[in-house]
Amino acid sequence: MTNSTNWFESGGEQYAQYRPQYPESLGKVLASLTKERHKALDIGCGTGQLTTILANHFDKVTGIDPSESQIHNAKPHPNISYDVANAEELPTSLSDINLITVAQAAHWLDLPKFYQEIKKVSAPNALLALISYGILQSDAHIKARFDQFYHQEIGSYWPSERKMVEEGYQNIHFPFPEIPVQDAEIKLEWNFEAFMGYISTWSAVRKAQDAGKTALLLRFHQDILELWGDPKQLRIMTWPIKMRVGKIHESLRKDSEIDYIKGDRFF
């Protein structure tokens, strides 16, 4: 991989292989918030990073994602069923869900429609958890070069919704009484290939590639390789996990009072 000019080409297979895994402790925290653990629903499940963890704590878990590629590469588990579907139009087979999670995907949703949709499939005491992990905190050896790449070189290629992730979804519309939840952390030891594989899954990298910025991407690849040293050497990477958890059937406003600009998303 170190000599490849196509390291930034990404799909469902690369996403499954290189996206950081949530800690098992996150599943325990989420499960502890609800008395009933019969059914969980993971929205925008990708390849099942969080879905598989939930399956260790709930009797049945459904993971949905609009991408066929992601679902095709999702991790199998006897307690999990996957489906290609949109968050704003959930499968009619879903019902009595105790916990609904949206991990690293809430910024892509039409939130008013989504909030209405989850009320149809959730159990009376169900909870909604919006989960995000922020900017990678990299090893000190590569931090300065990584920060330059993230904020300056491809900063303009991040979609505007990316800011919501960086803010831990603290400023998006969330009309549910919230339950305090302690923040968590992802901590991994990665070699050079794993690090660059993760970078390759970024939407900003794909957009920069489409814009003809291949030289910029390859220069970053080479600079990091030189700073890294032995590509097999493991370096510590961390991501802060932020969560907003609320009671679905106790909206702070009546449904009719949810105001948003017609034709636009409310964040």
Rank of each mutant, 00 (worst) to 15 (best):
S4F: 05
W7R: 07
G12S: 14
G12H: 03
G12Q: 10
E13A: 15
Q17N: 09
Q17T: 15
Q17M: 11
P20Q: 08
Q21F: 01
Q21V: 10
Y22N: 03
P23Y: 02
P23H: 01
K28Q: 10
L30E: 08
S32A: 15
R37M: 12
K39V: 12
L41R: 00
D42R: 06
D42Q: 01
D42Y: 00
G44E: 04
G46Y: 00
T47K: 02
G48Y: 05
Q49M: 07
T51S: 07
T52F: 05
I53S: 01
A55V: 08
H57I: 00
H57Q: 13
K60C: 08
P66V: 04
E68Q: 14
I71Q: 00
I71A: 02
P78D: 12
I80L: 07
A85H: 03
A85Q: 04
L90I: 13
L90C: 10
P91M: 06
P91E: 10
I97Y: 02
I97G: 04
N98Q: 09
Q104C: 04
Q104T: 12
A105H: 06
L109C: 13
P112W: 00
K113R: 14
F114H: 03
Q116H: 13
K119Y: 01
K120I: 12
S122A: 15
A123Y: 00
P124V: 10
P124L: 05
I135N: 08
L136T: 12
L136W: 04
L136V: 12
H141I: 06
H141F: 05
K143N: 11
F146K: 06
F146E: 07
Q148L: 10
Q148I: 07
Q152N: 13
E153W: 03
S156G: 03
Y157P: 06
Y157M: 10
S160C: 01
S160W: 02
E161P: 02
K163R: 13
M164S: 11
V165Q: 06
E166T: 07
Y169N: 10
I172Q: 09
I172F: 10
I172D: 02
P177E: 14
P180D: 00
D183A: 08
E185K: 13
E185L: 09
I186S: 07
K187V: 15
K187L: 13
L188F: 05
E189I: 00
W190H: 10
F192E: 03
E193N: 11
M196W: 09
M196V: 14
M196L: 15
T201S: 11
V205D: 04
A208P: 09
L218C: 02
F220W: 09
D223R: 07
I224Y: 05
L225Q: 12
L225R: 07
L225N: 06
L227V: 09
L227Q: 08
W228K: 09
D230N: 15
Q233R: 13
L234F: 05
R235W: 01
K242L: 04
K242S: 15
V245K: 03
I248P: 05
I248Q: 06
H249Y: 07
S251E: 10
D255Q: 11
E257R: 11
R265M: 04
F266W: 08
